[in-house]
Amino acid sequence: MKWGLVCNFHLKKAVSLAKDIYDFLSEKNNEVFMEKKLAEERNMKGFSLEEINEKADVVVTVGGDGTILRTLEKVEKPVFAINSGGMGFLTEVESKYAMGGLQRVMDGDYNVEERAKLKVVVDDERLPDAANEVTVQTDRIAKIMYLKILVENELVETYGADGVIVATPTGSTSYALSAGGPILDPAVDAMVVTPIAAFKLSARPWVVPLEKKVGIRLLPKSKESKLVIDGGFAKTVTPENDIVITGSEKKARFIRFGESFYQMVRLKLVR
C-alpha cells in the first residue's frame, strides 16, 4: 500500500508521532511518501502535496483541522486524519490510537466518506477549492464593509458587516457556526451563507443548494477587503471584483471507521 504523510511542523508531538508512523508503515513493507519539510528532519527525499496526491493511495495527516485543510487544498485521495492538535473535529482518531487505526486501514476495515467542496472564482480566475469555507472580510480591524449577496444573479441581501462566510456542510461546524449559522448534515448538498456581525437586524444565514451560484459584490464605499479560503489562501478583493461561489466537482475524502456525524457533534461541540 502507498501512503502519503503530512504533519503540523509547529507541533513537536505531531512531528514525533509522524516519524513513528513512518517507521511503523515502513516495517510492514508499505511505501511512504513524506512531505518535504518532514523528510528533511530525517535527511530523506521529500515530496510536495501535489506529488503525494499522485503517488499515494491514502494520505495520513498528523495534527489538527488546520493540517487537514492545508492538505485538502492539493490532495484528492482519502485522508486518514490523526489528532495531535486541539479539538480535531475532522480527525478520525486520537494520537494514542494512531497505530491501531493504521492497521485497520491496512486491513481494509474502513469506509471512505465524501464531502462537498466549494469552487471559488474571482473575475474568471479559479482559486483553490474550499473544504470548509470562503470568507470575505474587511482588511482593517473594526472597520465595517458593505456588500450585496446574490443567488443566480438575483439579489438576496445588502448589508454592512465585518464580512460574510460561505461554508460547506463540513465548514458549518466551524467559523460559520461561531457566527450564528446552522449545522448542516454532510449529506445535505447545500452551502451556508452567514453574515459576520451584520449591522442589520434582518440579516440572517441562508442555506443555498450547491448547484446554484452565490455572488458576492462589495459596494463602492467598502474599503479594501480580503477573500480567505479555509483560513489559508488569501486574496485582496475590491468593489471591482466579481466573486462567484458554487459547488465543486471535486470532493474531500475521509477515512472513517463508523462513528456518525451526530456522535462527533455531541462529543466535540456539545460537551
Rank of each mutant, 00 (worst) to 15 (best):
V244I: 15
I245A: 08
G231I: 03
A14E: 02
K45M: 09
G66E: 13
N153G: 07
T71I: 01
V151G: 08
G46S: 07
K2T: 12
D129R: 06
E35I: 02
V120H: 03
K2P: 12
F33Q: 00
A18E: 13
P209A: 05
I255E: 00
K28H: 09
K77E: 04
K12F: 01
K143P: 06
E113T: 08
V156R: 10
S178A: 12
E94D: 05
V58C: 07
S202L: 11
G171R: 06
G46H: 01
F33V: 02
F9T: 14
Y159M: 07
E240L: 02
Q263W: 15
T67Y: 09
V265Q: 10
R115T: 03
F254A: 04
E92H: 09
V244A: 10
S222L: 08
A234I: 14
K96I: 14
S174G: 15
G171K: 00
K96H: 15
V60Y: 00
V59N: 13
S248Q: 01
N29E: 15
P220W: 02
Y22D: 00
V228D: 02
I196Y: 00
A179S: 14
V228H: 01
V244H: 04
K212V: 01
A116Y: 06
S95Q: 13
M87W: 13
F33D: 02
A131V: 14
Y175P: 09
F80T: 11
S172F: 05
T238C: 11
E224K: 07
G160V: 10
